[in-house]
């Protein structure tokens, strides 16, 4: 474990806590893409299959349970909770995310570390996570003004993977035989997708103005 990965995990956890706070405090999920939440739930379920077979550490197990539990709870809330689901921007959240799932699965069959079921699913979860934020970014551009908590949620979600890239660079130089090229390339794509969001988020912070994404 290194400082980049730990702050990365804490940033990821913070993004989930901010999202839970927004939904719980405002009883609203306006501006949040249900499709991105469903993709993230699928990412965690596909990646953490080894939850009960490979014990890495208490930290690792606890975080996996938190990520799976929170992502499923958010999807359940947005689909079932009568007050929350009323505020869901159904007509704006129309990105066809099933194509993302199919595409990532095909890519995982072709490009993986080893053509074994767990490895293919792991690669699938890595590719899917890289593109899972697209419905959310599309929704933000369509909905124009972004409330603070939603903006902070998306910012933290993007920042965590940037910290993981620093972690991979650090591990590459400090650990012999360390290679996570699949995760690293996908992580670079994932972080690049946030580039313009980061730019407008920085502008809104610098000018102390409301976060506005050009539609």
């Amino acid at each position: 474990m290194n400082v980049f990965r730990l702050t990365g995990d804490m940033t990821h956890l913070a993004s989930i806590l901010v999202l839970l706070l927004k939904i719980y405090a405002t009883k609203s999920c306006s501006g949040i893409s249900l499709k991105t939440q469903e993709l993230y739930a699928l990412v965690f379920l596909a990646r953490y299959l080894n939850l009960f077979t490979d014990f890495i550490s208490v930290y690792n197990t606890v975080m996996k349970l938190v990520f799976i539990g929170s992502s499923l709870a958010i999807v359940w809330c947005m689909r079932m909770h009568k007050m929350v689901k009323r505020s869901y921007d159904q007509e704006l959240d129309t990105f066809r995310h099933y194509f993302l799932i199919a595409g990532c699965f095909l890519l995982a069959l072709l490009v993986n570390e080893k053509f074994m079921f767990p490895e293919v699913l792991w690669a699938f979860s890595i590719y899917l996570e890289a593109v899972s934020t697209i419905p959310q970014l599309v929704l933000l551009q369509r909905s124009g003004n972004v409330d603070n908590l939603t903006g902070q949620y998306v910012f933290l979600l993007g920042a965590y993977r940037a910290l993981y890239i620093l972690n991979w660079i650090y591990r590459y130089f400090t650990e012999p035989h360390f290679s996570r090229w699949i995760a690293c390339v996908a992580g670079l794509v994932q972080t690049a997708l946030y580039a313009d969001f980061f730019y407008y988020y920085f502008l809104s912070w610098k000018n102390n103005a409301k976060l506005q994404l050009p539609s």
Binding site: D9, H12, D54, I56, W122, E175, H177, F178, R180
Partner: peptide
Amino acid sequence: GKKNKKKDEL
């Protein structure tokens, strides 16, 4: 040495 195959990251 053995490549660290374990997926120790989240």
